[in-house]
Nucleic acid binder design. Structure first.
Length: 373
RNA sequence: GCUGGGAUAGCGAAGCGGUCAAACGCAUUUGACUGUAAAUCAAACGCCCUUGUGGCUUCGUAGGUUCGAAUCCUACUCCCAGCA
């Protein structure tokens, strides 16, 4: 089952609160979804996620398909049973990997030292070379649904072409059109193979071009998807460009469906996204920044700043990561000095504590946003 | 005391006549990170500046050989190992 209900609409902006319901439970929106790309939110246990209040996490089709394999996961009872995470799971399609493996081809070298691309586009799908062993794989819109069915996620994403930045108009257009073709094929395939448990979201592309974004919004919104996502943002285009995209797309999204801003992000970006009518967000930043030693701080939950705990000025700093913070790390009395030491020593605990803190920040931010709306 | 081995930038450690301000690793500093090829990556790291196929001073100390020395020779100082 899948449903979405808007519970409150702000008068000042497009912001709204809602309830997303999957067969695993209800999710209050706006929501931030931590990334468990390979079936784990790096460094954080599911109990901790649950205690932080997260109701849905993200998995990745590409990664789980390669290892341990969607067939294995199916055999072991699906991703929820496999991971022991009993709340909702959204799986990304692998479209972003097409982008990130493709964009990185310039720097990729094979065994012979030659540069080669890991990705090749075709009309029916995309041929990947696994970053793990170089083996070739074909992802089609249909195949990606099959894989996500095997994973048993609650929300599936269609295969899209995540356009890199900067992209020429022609390139953005071609990518968008392929995305649309795949979206159509996906929804047709899904209608034949539909089950009652899973939902399917479409993805809008169009890079930083207003007419393309508007066209894509219309096209994707007119297909019978359960939710609408915006992709191809936070790919290096910068905040101004991204906020423009939100402005072009946000007001034109179908009101009754959940709006998902993919790959975002920074606390300020989430605030901006909510104002433009988005309900769902995901991002690797809280855990990645955390592992790299950077944490978010805020005083008023409007403006945020990052501090890098690797810096030596924190060596003697006995304050918690953030003042008056009730995250599992700060509230237990862990100091900057200690965490700084752990990070520099590459001790796992350090990364865990910073990840927990950053995840808490986003969870608390969305909670406050919901309250405010 | 004798016999070997050694002393290189913050540390470890290459180099053993020219292309050496000196590989590499660590540490340090700075920067990046937005649907995770990311517990990662990039840059700086003797001193100076007009930042360059730039200038200056370095490879235990002091001399010497050589057009040219971190690299060869001599003396000295210190370290380490074995034997007395």
């Amino acid at each position: 089952m899948f449903s979405f209900k808007v519970t409150k609409q702000s008068k000042n902006s497009l912001a709204r609160t809602g309830i997303l319901e999957t067969s695993r439970g209800k999710i209050k929106t706006p929501v931030f979804m931590p990334c468990a790309t390979r079936g784990s939110v790096k460094g954080v246990s599911f109990e901790e996620l649950k205690n932080l209040g997260f109701e849905i996490i993200l998995g990745n089709t590409y990664h789980l398909y390669l290892r341990p394999g969607d067939k294995l996961i199916k055999k072991l009872g699906g991703l929820h049973k496999f991971t022991n995470w009993q709340n909702s799971i959204l799986t990304d399609s692998g479209g972003y990997q097409v982008f990130s493996l493709g964009a990185a081809y310039k720097s990729y070298q094979n065994k012979n030292g030659d540069k080669e691309s890991l990705v090749r586009f075709k009309k029916e799908g995309v041929i990947f070379k696994s970053h793990l062993d170089g083996s070739k794989h074909l992802f089609t819109p249909e195949k990606v649904i099959d894989v996500q069915k095997n994973l048993g996620s609650d929300i599936m994403m269609v295969l899209d072409v995540c356009t890199e930045y900067p992209a020429s108009y022609e390139r953005a257009q071609v990518s968008m059109e392929l995305t649309h073709l795949w979206a159509k094929k996906a929804i047709e395939y899904w209608q034949k193979k539909r089950n009652q448990k899973q939902a399917l979201f479409g993805i809008i592309q169009g890079s930083t071009y207003q007419d393309l974004r508007e066209e894509s919004t219309k096209f994707i919104s007119n297909l019978p998807f359960d939710g609408i996502a915006v992709g191809g943002v936070s790919v290096g285009e910068g905040k101004t460009n991204m906020y423009n995209v939100l402005k072009w797309v946000g007001p034109n999204l179908p009101q009754g469906k959940p709006h998902y801003l993919m790959g975002v992000g920074e606390p300020e970006d989430i605030i901006e996204g909510v104002k433009m009518g988005f309900d769902m967000f995901d991002c690797v930043l809280p855990t990645r920044l955390g592992r790299h030693g950077t944490i978010w701080q805020t005083k008023n939950w409007q403006k945020f700043q990052k501090i890098d705990l690797r810096k030596s000025k924190y060596r003697y700093d006995q304050k918690p990561m953030m003042k008056d913070c009730s995250c599992p790390a700060c509230s237990q009395g862990y100091t900057r000095a200690y965490i700084s030491h752990l990070i520099k020593e590459k001790e796992m605990l350090g990364m865990r504590l910073t990840s927990l803190h950053n995840l808490f920040i986003l969870q608390e931010l969305t909670r406050r946003i919901r309250e405010k709306i």
